[in-house]
């Protein structure tokens, strides 16, 4: 449905905004490398089923997400490594990995490798933006492109919520994916303060600065 397609394209747009920013400004300043590595982990653990993905739509997106994320990490770790400031990227990701790992082991739908890794990926994605938001907090401001990147990334999962509501009412056979919905709501909530600042500042063409 339209919400999900818009969400997936918003997700794709966020990746291309980020790529554009890094290549245009030849710098990855203001971008959290830790968050990018977490997203790489999210894609790898979620798309283990890539070889037998049924729908071409999903297959293409999975390949796009994995390949573009790999390229972003290459750019940040190799090409533009000097513009990477690890002293600003100090969020303790072990807490996030522990959070996702614990929930994946406690509440998977089934105790199979695919399901446990999938649950891990869903919970990890819900908190993977924290290092990036934390870095934003520390620098107190961000380039417009970085703000657009975070906004598009936040919008992607926010749009999945109406998608789930739409499917609940329109598809009689649709079963509520409680893990994805719970994590999706948590993820969107984590962006809420950013969205507020983004909306009030950037929409007025101002520079993205925290109050």
């Amino acid at each position: 449905n339209i919400f999900r397609v818009l969400g997936d394209f918003s997700h794709l747009a966020s990746i291309f905004i980020l790529l554009h920013k890094i290549q245009q400004l030849k710098s990855c300043s203001g971008i959290s490398f830790k968050s990018q590595v977490l997203y790489m982990l999210v894609y790898i653990t979620r798309y283990l089923d890539l070889p037998w993905t049924s729908s071409p739509y999903n297959f293409i997106f999975k390949v796009l997400f994995i390949s573009s994320e790999l390229y972003i990490i290459y750019l940040m770790a190799r090409a533009y490594k000097p513009t990477n400031d690890p002293n600003l990227d100090t969020f303790h990701v072990e807490f996030l990995l522990g959070f996702a790992g614990l929930l994946a082991l406690l509440f998977p739908y089934k105790y199979t490798i695919l399901e446990v890794f999938w649950a891990f990926s869903i919970w990890l994605e819900s908190v993977a933006i924290l290092p990036q938001l934390f870095m934003l907090q520390r620098t107190g401001e961000a380039e417009a492109m970085t703000a657009h990147y975070i906004a598009a990334l936040g919008m992607y999962r926010a749009l999945y919520i109406p998608n789930w509501i739409y499917r609940y009412f329109s598809e009689p056979t649709h079963k509520v994916d409680t893990i994805a919905v719970t994590a999706g709501i948590l993820q969107t909530i984590l962006y809420s303060d950013f969205f507020w600042i983004y909306y009030t500042k950037v929409m007025r063409g101002e520079k993205f600065k925290l109050p």
Partner: peptide, 10 residues
Amino acid sequence: VADGGSKDEL
């Protein structure tokens, strides 16, 4: 609670 078997979403 449904089982999330159908991984039809990204």
